[in-house]
Simulated assay, not measured.
Amino acid sequence: MPQAAPNFYFFKKFYLLIVISLKGFSQVLLVGNAFSGLLILIGITLHSPVLGLMAFLSSIVGTITGKYLGGDRDLIRNGIYGFNAILCGISTILFLHGDKRWFIALFAAALAALSLKMLTKVLDKWNIPVLTIPFVFITWIGLLIAYRVDTLYMDPDFVISSPAMWNLPVEGTPTLLVGMIKGIGEVFVIDSLWTGSLILLALFWTGWRFGLYAIIGTFVSWLTAYFIGADTHSLNLGLYNYNAVLTIIAVSLVFNKNLKKTPYIGIIAAMLTVPVTAGLELLLDPLGLPALTFPFIVCSWLFIALGKVFQSYKYKQTVPVQRLPSRNKQPI
């Protein structure tokens, strides 16, 4: 009997850690739901058990790191310290070869939590969301180091950019449905119909608006990329879609209170991610770096800022101006 209470306390703490870590998966899509996170984890694991295991361990490492760094309790409980860690862990496993990549992936996950803690303090002053900045910059820096260090081996399947690859072939048959679903899976840097389908299911589980907006975002971005002449390979892989999915959710649902008007604004933001992605890819190609979710960050920040400016202007127009009585006016 004396040991029952400690065992129960340990089980409760372990259960809470698992739930928070699962929320980290859904927080990649800007929602906090443990069951949605479980569906996403299953989708990743079906594609690759190794990636699934690393993603789960990365979320745990990010959560524990956030706790011992003294992170905000509500942020920790909602899985905020897990989502950048998950993306860093997955990208490390995908981009690197060798036994050291496991250690590097977990180190990157911890570093993502540390970066989130530091950036939150700075950006909160301007009420700017951190989003996936830690993941993007840690991955970029890691890739640049890997190009120059012999102890880190790049995966040969990861195409290192060269001038010969700047003009991609446009031959082939674009497939709308495949590109849309894979585009949702590419949020986690994964090319898989199963993963994309389960992520979409996870969004619908969170709320029908999240699932519907994800479909709209990936649809309009695919059409935009198709009509501006994007290469067929990228279209079928959904490489122009995943930033749009994140952006439309951020702009239309998470960081905007006016749900009646935001679908139209979110659609415009989702479409904008396509030329932004194309431009950033051209800019980053000479460095051999992928755009990752940086277009999502740029477009979301832009439309969040514009929304705040518009709301401020609207507030000034609706507030009546209080006029003081004139001192020179004489009573009749």
Results as ranks from 00 to 15, higher is better:
P275V: 12
S48V: 02
N243G: 08
L46M: 14
Q27P: 07
P134Q: 01
A270N: 13
S26M: 05
A108I: 03
A230E: 08
F158R: 14
F137W: 06
A112G: 07
L287N: 06
G62K: 01
G307P: 10
H47I: 00
A108L: 14
M118C: 10
I20G: 05
F158M: 08
M54L: 15
S91M: 07
A214H: 04
A291H: 06
L223K: 09
P6V: 06
K314M: 08
I86V: 08
P6W: 11
S326C: 14
W126D: 05
V170K: 10
A305P: 10
K67T: 07
I133M: 05
Y242N: 03
D74V: 07
I80L: 10
A278T: 05
N258Q: 12
F137N: 00
A105T: 03
L200R: 00
V122F: 15
F107P: 00
L237A: 05
V298M: 11
T247C: 08
I248H: 06
I90F: 04
V276R: 02
I160S: 12
S48M: 11
M54T: 01
G62F: 00
N243Q: 15
S192N: 05
G89Q: 03
T65M: 12
G24M: 12
S234R: 06
A110P: 11
I93E: 01
A5E: 13
D157E: 15
D155M: 12
S192V: 03
V319E: 15
G82M: 03
E171W: 08
V187I: 09
A278G: 13
T45G: 11
T247K: 01
A291P: 01
F204G: 11
I76Q: 04
D99K: 14
S59G: 08
D157T: 15
P156G: 04
Y242W: 09
D99N: 13
V254K: 13
G71A: 02
N243M: 05
L287M: 07
P320V: 05
G142S: 04
I64V: 13
F135H: 03
G82C: 06
L17K: 10
I297K: 02
